[in-house]
Amino acid sequence: MTISEMNFFQRMLYIVQRYGSSLLEGAATTMAIAIICTALGCVIGFAVGLVQTTEPKKNSNLFMRGLLKTVKVILTAYVEVFRGTPMMLQAAFIYYGAAQVFGVNLGMWSAAIIIVSVNTGAYMAETVRGGILSVDQGQKEGARAIGMSHVQTMLLVVLPQALRNIMPQIGNNLIINIKDTCVLSIIGTVELFFTFRSISGALYTYFEAATVVMIIYFVLTFTCSRILRWIETKMDGPADFDLATADTLAFTSGMTRYNAKTGGTY
């Protein structure tokens, strides 16, 4: 039976049988790039977001103020440029630019990782900034009031809470990255979308190949969103807590404590 004689489902089955390993490989590449780049993007985003929300110290000198201001301007430019241009063009710009201007051949993997993580970082920077601003000012004051430095306040009190607040957005970014790695096909990265184009190009079965690849994309994103939701509930900790007491009667009688001297409760 040739392809033209098959029905829709037979063609899909044929694609899976014949190109299954390529599809798996493409999916693995897509996931690897998405996960690595979301993680790196978070690191970049946290670094940039932290600097953006840093206020100069009251007693810091003109040089330090100027330095902070300059760094902030550069970072703002980075965020605006990478948020404001298509990632597909950024990929072409960086990959071909590096080769043409600097004579550097980045290679498929490093180019892909640089482009996607720098792009994610730009979005994450704004998310982290929002996350930090969303943490109640009182938390910072509470920390400063017991003598924590700015860095300690951020690391021990504000950032953990900001991270929890922006978890849904980090999940969003991961899912967007899983799908958006498809633009990397412009620089020849063999990910899932590239595999789709190869299959549909070879067999002329655009509809069937698209269906198969869409299903794969959906399984990937849906699984990730469930896992992230699970992580969020883990971060919230249990809804209950145990009373820390050696007195076993406290558990059966609620809050009433047993008085050993009188033998009764009080």
């Binding site: 009182g138 509470g142 400063r144 009031a145 017991i146 021990l156 009190v157």
Partner: peptide
Amino acid sequence: DQYRTKVGMVFQSFNLFNNLNVLDNCTVG
């Protein structure tokens, strides 16, 4: 920071660290 460890503060809005449990709130500083 050193001065603030010597002059403690209790706030109207408590300002306990929401990410830490009761014991950690009292040990982190």
